[in-house]
């Protein structure tokens, strides 16, 4: 698998992402500086977490205008695979690659804790190593993860099966109590209509090593590595 990790000033989870991708695929991802525009040869573009441009305007809004994002849009338009995590998800929504927006958490506080995610479909390159309906644990760490979109968009996402993960209890119940940041319909991650772009708020890349408390996040990267190993 040839993955590229896009770096904006203020991105800070690129190392975590590189560790997870390398662990799963055996090959180190390429770091792509925000001024670069050549993404050729990549199977997967990852926009990692952090505070691009300090999140001083609106989370992801500045990064969405960077030169590399034009290349990411072209890459996606050509059917390329894109993963955006946390600030990366925010950037993808700001760039118009995914619908909706991420608002301040409902409790108005930064939340750093484990959450549980229910897998809504497993027939994608991202979720192929999970089972549909499976619940996995993942760290999350964000102040603005409260997913929102207009009701028509939410209905469309659900109707077209584009909800990737929902916040759930460890038993898999999609409830208000499990919805830590107040996201609409407990949505933690969504796909593009062609299922090749995934944006999600939690950090599965931080739970890929038993020493760090578990490997619940690893199947996501194993699935990607397997999909692109076959493709190669």
């Amino acid at each position: 698998m040839k993955a590229g990790i896009v770096l904006f000033p203020g991105i800070n989870r690129e190392r975590d992402m590189a560790i997870a991708l390398t662990l799963a695929s055996g090959s180190k991802p390429r770091m792509v500086w925000h001024k670069e525009t050549d993404l050729s040869g990549l199977d997967l573009v990852v926009v990692p977490g952090g505070f691009s441009y300090g999140d001083y305007l609106r989370c992801g809004a500045m990064a969405a205008q960077a030169p590399v994002m034009r290349a990411v849009r072209d890459f996606a338009a050509a059917g390329g695979y894109v993963l955006g995590v946390c600030n990366g998800f925010q950037i993808l929504t700001e760039a118009g690659l995914l619908p909706g927006a991420l608002l301040r958490n409902a409790g108005l506080r930064f939340l750093s804790m484990d959450c549980h995610l229910r897998v809504e479909r497993s027939d994608t390159v991202f979720a192929g190593h999970y089972q549909k309906g499976q619940v996995f644990r993942s760290p999350m760490a964000h102040g603005d993860g409260n997913y929102i979109a207009d009701p028509a968009t939410l209905d469309r996402l659900e109707g077209e099966g584009l909800v990737a993960f929902r916040y759930a209890t460890p038993q898999g119940e999609v409830s208000e109590a499990a919805n830590l940041n107040g996201s609409a319909r407990n949505i933690a991650g969504i796909y593009s209509p062609n299922l090749r772009i995934l944006g999600l708020m939690p950090h599965p890349e931080d739970l890929v090593d038993p020493l760090m408390g578990g490997t619940d996040g690893k199947p996501l990267f194993d699935g990607l590595a397997a999909a692109f190993a076959q493709a190669a």
């Binding site: 190392r15 975590d16 506080r109 930064f110 804790m113 931080d206 090593d209 760090m212």
Partner: peptide, 9 residues
């Protein structure tokens, strides 16, 4: 819970 304790992996 308001401090990111897992970043860095």
């Amino acid at each position: 819970n308001q401090y990111d304790s897992t970043i860095g992996g």
